[in-house]
Design a protein around this nucleic acid. Structure first.
Lengths: 238, 238
DNA sequence: CGTCGTTGTATCTCCATGGACACAGCGGTG
DNA sequence: CACCGCTGTGTCCATGGAGATACAACGACG
């Protein structure tokens, strides 16, 4: 069971998706829409039409030549390349979402600003982006947003961003190449995951059982309505 | 022009998408698949079939009753509620992706580990997750991953995680309720965005023109192939 | 005991997406 | 001057997803 998202880029009313990007990359790689279609096992006519359709909102994507040596061909515009790069980064970000585990804690919103709020959880109070509707929430932090510090160093509270800060004990520590996945037990029930560099593990001289401080930004912490928080459930048909 | 992703959760072979979640929420809210379908302007038959289809891989989602007071109805299982909550968080994360701007710098991979690498950019060297193929890359950091510090405080380099650290000057500062969007000019050409709390702005006593240090984790920094980096382009048909 | 609001199926139709195919035009090349 | 490998366009058809419709069953309630 894993979660993710299908990346897309929307311009005006039309959306560029994975499939479109695949076609453009094929054109770039093979120098013609014809061969791109062939290579991708897709219909040339469709690709041609789709590209010209997209160009109406996205701007020029290819310059094409008919006839000549090799019969002609199509080359991507710099506009198209920019789009592809943008999509690559988007894809990387989204797939990062899928690959990075998220630590989840249930809690209750006890203080609420415009978008920021304080959530009371078993592990302590957390500053997070809170949804407008519900008070019963689940707070999520992605492991790549969590930093680990030695417990004795006080991160100057006056200078640093409003960071959430939890002290805990290293439960597991998995090195994966030059990265490491650390599970920190905070309080009795809560586990906080951190994705850090292997170099940091060495620098902190981290081992299972050690005490550490996990810290993460409020703006990287998101709360969503908790399961019980849904209003429905009370069936009401009279 | 904005980018995003359509969230989905995949279990076994079947995927739960926005539409499925909408249906389940409708059932929860109205107490029956029948009224959920009606309210959502969708076909009851479809929803019923879809739910039972999903249940085969995802596990029980509803308990249904036929006849009785009100003719029966359907209630979500706790399994379904968990799924919905998971989806809510996923949606929040993905929509966060869409809403949070990303700072992008082009550069070249000068050192490469297993997944981590060092990228040389106009603003300096950055540690980032690098792709396997290309050396010409674009480095991206999402603004909610960037912390700001006062320039005089040295964040103990021995204790903290391997964080990228850039000194710059505040170019713009937009308060949006209890959040603030800060553009930091690093070097001549590079702008780094940071999404921080308004409280942090006050604490740092930040104003446009001030010098600040922007810092962000290596594991939250992603590189993707740069536009020029694509191999194709060299048309080769002989 | 019939009515009512559901669940659970089965079947038909509509529509959008995308492949398949056909054909004209283009411009170097042999 | 015919050929080749493309572009550009029109048309038909297969497929899948989803609405529409129909109908049996169910169980409390008046």
């Amino acid at each position: 069971m894993d979660a993710g998202g299908d990346p897309y880029i929307e311009v005006d009313g039309s959306t560029v998706d994975e499939r479109d990007v695949e076609a453009l990359q094929g054109i770039d790689e093979h120098g013609s829409m014809y061969r791109a279609a062939e290579e991708l096992g897709r219909s040339y006519a469709r690709i041609q039409r789709r590209v010209t359709e997209l160009e109406q909102t996205v701007g020029p994507l290819v310059v094409s030549e008919r006839g000549g040596a090799g019969g002609g061909g199509s080359t991507l515009t710099s506009n198209a390349r920019t789009l592809l790069a943008r999509f690559d980064r988007l894809r990387a970000a989204v797939s990062g979402l899928a690959r990075t585990e998220e630590s989840v804690v249930s809690g209750r919103v006890v203080d609420r600003g415009e978008r920021l709020g304080t959530v009371e959880t078993p592990a302590g109070r957390v500053r997070a982006l809170v949804p407008a509707g519900a008070d019963a929430v689940q707070v999520g932090v992605r492991s790549d947003a969590v930093s680990l510090l030695a417990p004795d160093e006080a991160p100057q509270p006056a200078g640093t961003s409003a960071r959430n800060r939890f002290e805990g004990k290293v439960r597991t520590l998995d090195r994966e190449g030059d990265l490491a996945r650390v599970a920190v037990a905070v309080g009795a029930e809560t586990t906080l995951w951190a994705l850090i560099t292997a170099a940091s593990v060495d620098r902190l001289d981290l081992a299972e059982g050690d005490r550490v401080v996990a810290s993460f930004k409020a703006t990287a912490t998101r709360a969503a309505p908790a399961p019980e928080g849904r209003t429905g459930a009370n069936r009401d048909r009279s």
